[in-house]
Design a binder for these strands. Structure first.
Lengths: 189, 189
DNA sequence: CGAGGCCTTGACCGCGGTCAATGCCCGTGG
DNA sequence: CCACGGGCATTGACCGCGGTCAAGGCCTCG
């Protein structure tokens, strides 16, 4: 598990063994059952998670009680309700385990503490934010320019794992279309 | 003009006069006429801009030739086609001056060079990315959970400047609704 | 074996887009 | 200074994508 985290970090920065030990000390392992809610509406996101196995889902719920999925994160990815994590305000996002999931979690305080302690952690976080921003903007673009069929086809091409691994209901929520529409789309192609 | 940039930087980090002189040396002033296209489709975003007066618009064009506005940036804000700026890939986004606009521009090379030269520039950029991410995700959320009327009302509340200062056509493009729909919405409320 | 959740399919409908006509404002040139 | 033309806003008529509601079948898990 810690090996996975090391590899993930080394995608952005080089760290020595001592530096990694320092970092790792702040991460606590956690094991979740399927459907466990890690963060509820109105709570402030106090931790960021590195997933070693399983899958997390980050989603909104709108006024009618419909949910809209903002993001799926799988093993070897980092995730949280990032807006609340950054702003320290109550979250409009939920975080939930889609499967039995194992992760390493670090608190906001320790994470930002590392930014002071270890200058290269700034770079690590910056790289993470760059990727998160790129992902978010690509997603924004797909909603601004594609119809539901095109969104589904793009998802199949760029992120087939989501379609393969998760129930239709969740895929529909990710594309922001109804389950029925997704079902009809699939039967056509 | 340089005073505006200094204030902007000092919102995230404290800089000495020498540090600011070092930074400022990389920024070149530029004056644009209304409608000038700063970045065209397929070009790679080579510069990031600090606006001292005027307004920039960052937008996509979809297959039917319709445009969808991702962002408006006004005086005392920084902007660019950030995805292309980060990834160094050809941009799917356009950047255009909405009004006569004056700005300070720095190249990608110099901007990333400063990250090495000046450790606190990492923090400045990180804070900028945090804000950009929060803005982008809030916007994503509004598309995932609101209908056109709600989007317009939210815009009126959170960013009235856009409605006051820009033509309807541009406001509609920002909300990703047709000009006609926006016109009907306005006449009702 | 029963119950509940998920997927599929059909019928219906409403939001918002498209097309078209008209009016208004404004910049440009004769 | 006025005449003209082009871009923008408004309004009406129409329509299609995709949502909602409902019924039925299937699979999973207790």
């Amino acid at each position: 598990m810690s090996q996975q985290l090391l590899s993930f970090i080394q995608q952005s920065i080089a760290v020595s063994q001592e530096e990694f030990d320092l970092i790792l000390a702040y991460f606590k392992p956690l094991k979740l059952k399927k459907n466990h809610l890690l963060l509820d509406y109105g709570e402030t996101s106090q931790r960021i998670f590195f997933i070693t196995s399983g899958c997390l889902r980050i989603f909104f719920i709108n006024d009618d009680g419909q949910d809209a999925t903002r993001h799926f994160a799988f093993e070897n990815q980092m995730a949280t309700a990032l807006v609340s994590f950054i702003t320290r305000e109550a979250s409009g996002e939920f975080v939930q385990a889609m499967e039995e999931t194992e992760l390493l979690s670090i608190t906001h305080e320790d994470f930002y503490g590392l930014l002071e302690l270890l200058p290269k952690w700034e770079k690590f976080y910056r790289c993470y934010l760059e990727m998160a921003y790129v992902t978010s903007t690509r997603r924004l673009r797909s909603f601004l320019t594609l119809d539901s069929k095109e969104k589904y086809q793009q998802l199949l091409q760029e992120n087939p794992r989501i379609v393969q691994r998760l129930p239709n209901k969740m895929v529909a929520s990710y594309l922001n279309i109804s389950q029925e529409t997704l079902s009809r789309l699939k039967s056509k192609v």
